[in-house]
């Protein structure tokens, strides 16, 4: 896939791949329908490049979200051939002769075409208070709180989340029950729980049937995570924490 010599590019440029893109135009479509487009099969084109080609050259009415096209912003997550993927990091050449089927992320209301409504997630995210909670400090904050490498390592992995929502889309529990707090929100709660500077307590938010206890450890969130956050592990670890706090009366409440 790194072979981008001129000859290869030209040969590839003459080939095309079929992209089947889900369209949903409110007021026009009763439910999503697929529309096919033929786009050039370039060895260095990601699915997102294919969508941009459609938008620029073939059909300007197609709607989708994207921004950084380098796996950092987390806005181009879609369902590609049934799998939750970042379209900027999924290459067309992965799908051989095609077709490549692009649908919106599963489990979310569809606003238009490939754009989903993430308001539910944003509300869940703020419910876990994903910030450092401090007590007894007056503004302006001037003190520094140094951390040892071990203290950093304790939560660093969970801080890599880019809120791309692939984990929600891959989670059957969330797709069946949209009230489930979900992988990313719980992983981010753990990111702050495990931070030595945090003084908050998220027990009452996380210790709920719709929160960590809704998870049945399918493990798909971890498999699809493009940032190796491992939300499944974050949830299981908090289950143990919450269970021990529930049975041990002397543990902090």
């Amino acid at each position: 896939m790194t072979d981008t010599t001129q000859a290869v590019r030209q040969a590839a440029g003459t080939r095309t791949i079929r992209m089947e893109v889900a369209r949903y135009r409110p007021g026009q479509d009763a439910e999503p329908v697929f529309q096919g487009y033929d786009v050039p099969l370039m060895s260095d084109w990601a699915v997102l490049d294919g969508l941009n080609h459609i938008k620029d050259q073939l059909d300007g009415s197609l709607s989708y979200r994207w921004s950084c096209r380098m796996g950092v912003c987390g806005s181009c997550g879609m369902t590609v051939n049934g799998e939750a993927r970042l379209t900027c990091g999924t290459f067309l050449s992965e799908y051989g002769d095609g077709p490549v089927r692009v649908e919106p992320l599963k489990g979310f209301p569809i606003i238009r075409d490939l754009v989903v409504d993430i308001d539910g997630f944003l509300a869940k995210l703020s419910s876990v208070r994903p910030w450092l909670i401090r007590e007894g400090e007056d503004l302006p904050l001037t003190a520094e709180y140094a951390q040892t490498p071990e203290q950093l390592e304790a939560y660093k992995q969970y801080s890599m989340c880019i809120n791309c929502l692939l984990c929600y889309s891959a989670c059957p529990v969330y797709v069946l029950d949209p009230d489930f707090l979900g992988p990313a929100a719980i992983a981010l709660a753990q990111r702050y729980n495990l931070d030595s500077r945090d003084m908050g307590d998220r027990f009452d938010v996380l210790n709920q049937e719709d929160a960590v206890w809704g998870c049945t450890f399918v493990g798909e969130c971890t498999k699809v995570c493009p940032k190796h956050v491992d939300p499944a592990e974050a949830i299981q670890r908090y289950k143990l924490t919450a269970a021990l706090r529930s049975v041990l009366p002397w543990s902090r409440r």
């Binding site: 007590e135 908050g200 009452d204 210790n207 049937e209 206890w213 289950k239 919450a242 269970a243 529930s246």
Partner: peptide, 23 residues
């Protein structure tokens, strides 16, 4: 720890059920 006042926290049997499940 610093919850808004008046927010009742639902008690849940799930932690105990999960411990029995895991054990």
């Amino acid at each position: 720890m610093r919850r808004a006042e008046g927010v009742a926290v639902r008690r849940t049997p799930e932690p105990y059920l999960w411990l029995l499940f895991s054990g």
